[in-house]
Amino acid sequence: MSKVDTPRAETKAVARPSRAGVLRRQLQQFLAFASLVVLMAFFSIANANFLTWSNISGILLSTAVIGILALGTTFVIITGGIDLSLGTGMTLASVMTGVFLVNFGLPLIVGVIGGILTGALMGMINGFNVAVLKIPPFIATLAMMLIAQGLALVISGAAPIYFSAVPGFTDIAMGSLIPGTRLPTAVLILFALTATAAVILGKSILGRYTFSIGSNEEATSISGINVRKWKILIYTLSGMFTGIAGVVIASRLNSAQPALGLGYELQAIAAVVIGGTSLQGGKGSVIGTIIGALIMGVLTNGLRIMSIPQEWQTVVVGVVILVAVYTDILRRGKGA
């Protein structure tokens, strides 16, 4: 007897139903979710303080910003692209929010929308550079990362902008909409955006084209879809999420910190990858991304509670990324 289950097998077995494929996709999400549960079980046994309401809500709060960034960039990654300007783009958005609200004294809602639009504009420029000028996403967004970082410092004069004089601003992230739960609004924003992103990716025409471009960009174009236009839209959408993350982090810190942000993009990309989205494009899910972000949040928090030094926490996150991606390769393995 010999090897079983080779790729060709499926080719020939046209008569078989395709449930295996559907199941496999569900399995992928299930595995990510199971790892999250196992991690949480491990930490709750290791430390009694882990599974407390205040700690869980703390994890959710610390996941919110990375999670929002990761949600947006999931779309970009499914097209086969990458966005390195997430972190500093978020910073520029929060600085601009500060400029609108503190320096210009504009109404709260206008400042918030301005911050979000700053992110969207950067996304749009990224999209234009990638889709029209055909600059590889890695380079285009690397450049944008530097531009955003520099602009954030220039505009703020390299000093934090404080929102103390803006009434209600901290409530955006730190308020509590549901009475009695002490669940920060930032977490609710994360949940709402998760639902929105899931609908856009799973149900909307933009989501469908995102998968199509990632699966085969040339074929998508020949199929009569204006790939340039849709890519710009996808990067703009991702930029909006970056803008929202900028507002949320500013509200949470009650200040726009121009030196912050670098490195957030890598954590967001890590969350997306742990969630099973393929950097090759064409595959991925919003639920996966949010589970990936939570795994990172739980891991960081759990290790901290267990008094593992910060330096080692970083090492562990690196190893987790390797393990997550390798398991994914094994799972789709020969069949892919």
């Binding site: 395709s18 025409i205 998968f211 199509s212 085969n216 040339e218 998508t220 879809i225 595959k283």
Partner: peptide, 24 residues
Amino acid sequence: KRFGLMLDQDVNFNIIISSLTEYT
């Protein structure tokens, strides 16, 4: 394979991709 199909996607995805706006 290069210009015609999204091979990783299913039959339905591929058939309606060009006319998607009609079902939106």
